[in-house]
């Protein structure tokens, strides 16, 4: 692997590397986006083995089509979208699609149980449970914003939803998390 103390390469440089069959291009992109893409895939698919497969496939595909990359490619959205598409395909095979879930206010999620909120004492644990209680799409948008530091337009772009939808989901997410935590927050 290339050491970390590398100069920063622009997308254009990286594209040039790839066009020249120089694997440094692949390696630099891999180092830069591997962890983020893995977590992104995991948020979508919630299985470690499949997330790893997806990340592998994203970079492998990139290498395969390296001579056909668009001229002004922005790798970050490109790779995330590729990961998203692969995740969706995988989910279709598993016959699940978290992206088609909306965020209705009253349907409780099956992933966590409200009673769990009482079981943990730590506020951070409670917050995590509250996040787990969110409906899938809502949860996904919130996590991408919070843990992956993605901007609204980025989330919208990667998930193929409108920025307005991201705004709404974020609003709902915070509203619901606060509702669950309200009894515990008053002490802060």
């Amino acid at each position: 692997m290339i050491p970390d103390s590398r100069p920063l390469y622009s997308d254009e440089d990286l594209r040039t590397f790839l066009l020249q069959d120089d694997r440094r291009g692949l390696e630099i992109l891999y180092k830069k986006y591997y962890a983020g893409l893995y977590r992104f895939a995991y948020l979508l698919i919630k299985r470690e083995d499949l997330s790893e497969d997806i990340v592998l496939e994203v970079f492998f595909k990139l290498w395969k089509i390296r001579h056909h990359l668009p001229e002004k490619i922005a790798f970050k959205p490109y790779l995330y979208k590729a990961a998203k598409n692969l995740a969706i395909n995988t989910l279709k095979k598993l016959q699940q699609d978290p992206l088609t879930y909306d965020c209705p206010d009253d349907i409780p999620s099956h992933q966590a149980d409200i009673s769990q909120l009482l079981e943990v004492s730590d506020l951070e644990d409670k917050i995590n449970i509250a996040i787990q209680l969110l409906p899938p799409k809502c949860q996904l948008v919130f996590k991408l914003s919070r843990y992956e530091d993605m901007t609204y337009p980025e989330i919208a772009d990667y998930l193929n939803i409108s920025v307005k939808t991201v705004e709404n989901q974020m609003g709902k997410a915070l509203k619901k998390i606060r509702e669950h935590l309200k009894p515990y927050l008053s002490g802060i």
Binding site: L56, R146, Y147, I177, R178, L185
Partner: peptide, 22 residues
């Protein structure tokens, strides 16, 4: 407060080793 505390234990803890996947 929620936002801030959510960041501390949230997210995915484990990402497989970069080198192995590479």
């Amino acid at each position: 407060q929620i936002w801030e505390h959510a960041g501390q234990k949230g997210g995915i803890q484990h990402v497989p080793d970069e080198e192995i996947v590479w």
